[in-house]
Design a protein around this nucleic acid. Sequence first.
DNA 1: TTGTAAGCGTTATCAT
DNA 2: ATGATAACGCTTACAA
Lengths: 340, 340
Amino acid sequence: MGATIKDIAQLSGVGISTVSRVLNSSGSASKETREKVIAAAKELKYVPNNNARNLKMVHSKTILLLAKSIVNPFFQEMIKIIQNQIMLRGYSLDIQNIDGYEDEMALAKQKVLSGNPCALVLMGGCFGYEDADFISLGIPCVLATVKAADTVDENLYSSVLINDKEEMASAVEYLIGLGHKRIGCIYNNYEEAITPNKLRFEGYKMALERNGIPFDPFLVSSPKDTFDSGYKFGFNMMKYLMERNPDMTAVVTMADIMAIGAAKAVLSSGRKIPDDISIVGFDGIEVAEYYHPALDTIAQPVQLMAQQIVEAVMEMLDGGKTSHVVLKSNLVKRGSCKAV
Amino acid sequence: MGATIKDIAQLSGVGISTVSRVLNSSGSASKETREKVIAAAKELKYVPNNNARNLKMVHSKTILLLAKSIVNPFFQEMIKIIQNQIMLRGYSLDIQNIDGYEDEMALAKQKVLSGNPCALVLMGGCFGYEDADFISLGIPCVLATVKAADTVDENLYSSVLINDKEEMASAVEYLIGLGHKRIGCIYNNYEEAITPNKLRFEGYKMALERNGIPFDPFLVSSPKDTFDSGYKFGFNMMKYLMERNPDMTAVVTMADIMAIGAAKAVLSSGRKIPDDISIVGFDGIEVAEYYHPALDTIAQPVQLMAQQIVEAVMEMLDGGKTSHVVLKSNLVKRGSCKAV
DNA sequence: TTGTAAGCGTTATCAT
DNA sequence: ATGATAACGCTTACAA
């Protein structure tokens, strides 16, 4: 099939290892041979074989990305940017979706063995990691949008995320500032795991408490009622909340996709947004901007997060140094909220 | 790091090739050794190394999927299903996004060399393939949502798609049936390539002609005005069309994401859907159902398409036989269209 | 039925 | 600076 370094060696009349050295610009080679080799490589349209390369574990140039709920447009956008950045740096990205109930760490360990990636990015997922996980992985790991518990040694991994609790609190306080008192919360969480959603839920409760508004479980969609997550979940939960709480004037959701579902429930019941119900989403996905009315949301800095993730990977790759960055989100007001 | 077949061989007291044979259930082995080997593999938590496996080209168990515009939720959903199916069958999927202007065939050839996949799925892209492309690929290729030109030998590849031209025509005729005569068309196409969008555009023109309505280029968003494609493109094009055509009563779009952008343009200008403008999208993505009003659309059978794609891959993989299936789409009426 | 041995394309360790 | 040569983990003739 394709040309190999052996062919290049033959054509350029040098040794096979010289070719390897030139092509990886590792080790030394005279200008003369360098040129000969590169010319031969071009002529033969040489494309390196990643499988052979990755067999040698030192630096496999393949980064593994495991994403929970890859279908969320928010992750989508982030992944796309990451893939671009990674490719520009000469690495390739192996993307795998994981379902909500799957154990991402277990899968990661398996994939490390089967694919020999040089680094791992874990996106979404939960906060339930332990020292041992990162150690047994054996490769640099960057957590995206989540962090490990405080008990975990921060030198074992890097992380890029926002302050979910605080940001959600600011969303709720935005509503409170508009005079809302009966604020619903559309929330789902898989089992007992600590996830970004759980933290956001805590932010919701914290904001209420800070402002002297009693927490009312009736205003929270029960995690037990998990239909399909996403749009449909938001829709069903909102219908449920409106039935139970005729006095509810606003609602916050864990994600824009839920907010859109919720908005649909409001509008199709004949109510108006924001006149009857105010809605705030979370994430800042593009389509929320084109909804009508456009949805207010806590917009995460996707672009920046993606960059920081790649940055963190690269840093760990050549220095081994870890970093933990917490980025600011941005409350975007577009008109789906109104003073009572 | 991980255990290798060598370790298994040692632990179970058999030869290394016997282990390989048992694990791949190729060749023969006595029940006794089979059990010993499997037990050892379990004990050592053996995970096969794909890189080593793929180095031997016969059957690499990795399928390459190249998708144009991976961000379109329609492709997203399809990819997710494909990935699931592929994994269930013991293969792994390598997904790569390609930008609109990139040459997918060239990238495919490169990836075949670098990753040694056993099959290729090309999603989206254009119709500009030639015999030589498929031959030089050297592995089975399935085109998803597109097809090669008629001049290309059908035994060289498989395809799964819908009849874009006819389906779009049915969307337009649905509007015509409602009494619409001034029907706009939001259309973008990269350069001169034949793409699904181009075929849909032809379907638009065909439907007009069939019904004796003159084609008016003023009602078509010019391909030259390409802003960002997607939501934003739909939004900008719709604004443009409304300005130029005060008498326009309906519009069809090449994709639901454009339809959403277009709908936003209508609604934010104070007009009503469907009272002032009727809109029909294309694809059948989930969010179009939660838009308000919910958007009428030509829904492609994503689930079925994904299954057929995987099916086609598998068939080519073990028999080499190609197939070409054309699936029916479904006009979903949800209320974004109304009689004039 | 089983084991030995020869690669697959690369990188890395040595001598030279 | 350069070229043999030995891995890497696995598959597969080919022997036994």
